[in-house]
Lab assay of single mutants.
Amino acid sequence: QAPETKIVDKSRVACDGGEGALGHPRVWLQIPEDTGWVECPYCDCKYVLKGSKADAL
């Protein structure tokens, strides 16, 4: 199944896999201003900063 994409309001987000005990260790991710998105290294969930150029795609 394809990784999930989430639109977020802040450039710093936490990801834990979203499945409680079945998820992964919580990691904090920083969305770079130049790209407007970041992917979780564990679950490949893509976080897109709302209003960024990546959000316009």
Rank of each mutant, 00 (worst) to 15 (best):
Q1Y: 13
Q1P: 11
Q1W: 14
Q1C: 15
A2E: 11
A2T: 10
A2H: 14
P3W: 11
P3Y: 11
P3L: 10
P3C: 15
P3G: 11
E4Q: 15
T5N: 05
T5Q: 10
T5D: 05
T5I: 14
K6M: 11
K6Q: 09
K6S: 07
K6R: 12
I7E: 05
I7F: 08
I7T: 06
V8Y: 01
V8A: 03
V8M: 02
V8F: 01
V8D: 02
V8G: 01
V8S: 08
V8N: 02
D9F: 12
D9A: 08
K10H: 12
K10L: 08
K10R: 10
S11V: 12
S11W: 07
S11R: 12
S11A: 12
R12E: 11
V13M: 02
V13S: 03
V13R: 01
V13F: 08
V13H: 01
V13L: 06
V13P: 03
A14K: 08
A14E: 08
A14L: 09
C15W: 00
C15N: 00
C15L: 00
C15F: 00
C15G: 00
C15V: 00
C15A: 00
D16T: 12
D16P: 05
D16W: 03
D16I: 10
G17Q: 03
G17S: 04
G17T: 02
G18V: 03
G18N: 06
G18R: 09
G18W: 06
E19A: 13
E19Y: 07
E19S: 11
G20S: 05
G20T: 04
G20A: 06
G20P: 03
A21N: 10
A21C: 00
A21S: 09
A21Y: 09
A21G: 08
A21E: 12
L22G: 09
L22V: 07
G23N: 06
G23I: 09
H24T: 05
H24V: 03
H24F: 05
H24R: 02
H24G: 04
H24A: 05
P25E: 11
P25T: 10
R26V: 08
R26T: 07
R26E: 07
R26Y: 06
V27K: 04
V27M: 02
V27R: 01
V27N: 04
V27A: 04
W28V: 08
W28A: 06
L29T: 02
L29A: 01
L29H: 04
L29E: 03
L29Y: 02
Q30K: 05
Q30N: 10
Q30A: 05
Q30V: 13
Q30R: 07
I31E: 03
I31H: 04
P32D: 11
P32E: 07
P32G: 04
P32T: 05
E33M: 09
E33W: 08
E33G: 07
E33S: 06
E33L: 13
T35F: 05
T35G: 03
T35M: 08
T35C: 06
G36T: 02
W37S: 06
W37E: 04
W37H: 02
W37G: 04
W37R: 01
V38G: 01
V38K: 01
V38P: 03
E39V: 14
E39T: 12
E39A: 13
E39D: 09
E39P: 01
E39I: 14
E39N: 10
C40F: 13
P41S: 04
P41R: 02
P41H: 07
P41E: 02
P41G: 02
Y42M: 14
Y42N: 06
C43N: 00
C43V: 02
C43Y: 03
D44N: 15
D44P: 11
C45Q: 15
C45S: 15
K46S: 04
K46L: 08
K46C: 14
K46D: 14
K46P: 00
Y47S: 07
Y47H: 12
Y47G: 14
Y47I: 11
Y47E: 14
Y47W: 07
Y47L: 12
Y47F: 15
V48P: 14
V48K: 01
L49Y: 05
L49K: 14
L49C: 15
L49R: 10
K50P: 11
K50T: 09
K50N: 11
K50A: 12
G51Y: 01
G51C: 14
S52W: 00
S52L: 01
S52P: 01
S52D: 08
S52N: 03
K53D: 11
K53P: 12
K53I: 13
K53N: 06
A54M: 03
A54Y: 00
A54K: 03
A54T: 05
D55H: 00
D55A: 00
D55M: 00
D55Q: 00
D55S: 00
A56D: 13
A56P: 14
A56I: 13
L57H: 09
L57T: 13
L57E: 12
L57G: 13
L57K: 10
L57M: 12
L57Q: 12
L57C: 15
